[in-house]
Design a protein around this nucleic acid. Structure first.
Lengths: 186, 186
DNA sequence: TATAGCATGTAATTAGTTACATGATTAA
DNA sequence: TTAATCATGTAACTAATTACATGCTATA
């Protein structure tokens, strides 16, 4: 059976102990979101499909009058998750980076506009670094509480990743500023 | 008027002197593909829309019996391209990285499977580096011929980017291998 | 008492890929 | 002569986002 990647996100989040669609979405938004996003429009229909396929089991839990449907992995779901994690199919890696797209075409810009573009790109990456650092204490706490190592390692990767890109921008800014200055002199 | 990013890819490629849908697709596949892909299914309909909107101008050129439609930017198209390049709207940055998604959930894997996952991720990034290095001479030649600096700078970015990710994987491999070894000892 | 958060869900839309159909030209 | 390349295009499909609708509960 072939599942969508988003199905595996759900399976994985249930393995980490999240139960409702809402909780899954909340956790996605502070974790996998940065390399695999998911919206309610995917999560709720997918939960239904996974239950029909017998990979998860849902139960209505009523807290007073508020309905909520809590899910857990079945043995089959656990197996499907592990099968995907361990499979050696090529790993999808796509990105859509508008900043680099503009940079590619930046010969059509004036020198000062080129510098401004790279500066904005750098600032964006720096803002992501800040957001990720803000998540860090919570992630560290979750590790202490449940013993999972990899979510925190992944967060470290995210911080290093955006710091690397910000640093690249910084160097490019200096380089372009030097070119701009030498052109003005001549 | 709001255009799709893919529309700007086309405008930008025409600015670089590409003329037919086929040529645009060929260039995309060795350049922006790594941070902004585009398929025939997008390119040909978009060429039609851009022509209807007056941003590009197409002319049928017959080489013998082979039909081909060559496009060039109009003044309005040039302006639209520059407007997008210089605008300070937030820059879209999305990615879908299955390797890191698996890594995030890798607590569910055995130590040897964890190492294998990161090794495969590293190998994939290294293969991309090789492919990009293979493109380099052509890109260097294009710069000499037409004077564009930024496509080559972007290629440098791509190489540095995948090298960084490969290096991160390498370090993680060592770390995980050390953990695995210490667990076996105990 | 009002706002933020918890909770579920769908309809409409947008973006993009894949696969296919067609046919000419060039180089091995 | 055959395979690769040049060239155009569309139909079907898949993935995913956005916006909306609904209603409960806890907190300031």
């Amino acid at each position: 059976m072939d599942l969508s990647r988003t199905a595996y996100v759900i399976l994985g989040m249930l393995k980490l102990g999240r139960r409702t669609g809402y909780e899954i979405k909340s956790l996605v938004d502070v974790s996998t979101r940065f390399f695999w996003a998911a919206s309610y429009g995917q999560i709720y229909p997918e939960l239904k499909r996974l239950e029909d396929a017998g990979l998860i089991r849902g139960r209505d839990e009523r807290e007073g009058a508020r309905r909520r449907r809590a899910y857990e992995l079945t043995a089959a779901g656990e197996k499907a998750l592990h099968g995907w994690l361990a499979s050696d199919e090529p790993l999808a890696h796509e990105m859509r980076d508008e900043g680099m797209l503009k940079f590619f075409f930046a010969d059509a810009l004036e020198p000062d506009e080129q510098v401004a573009l790279v500066r904005r790109l750098r600032e964006q990456h720096q803002r992501v670094v800040e957001r990720l650092r803000a998540i860090e204490p919570g992630a560290r706490g979750a590790r202490e509480a449940h013993g999972e190592e990899f979510p925190l390692l992944t967060l470290g990767w995210g911080i290093a990743y955006h710091e690397f890109l910000a640093r690249w921008c910084e160097q490019m800014e200096e380089r372009l500023a030097a070119v701009e200055a030498s052109k003005k002199r001549s």
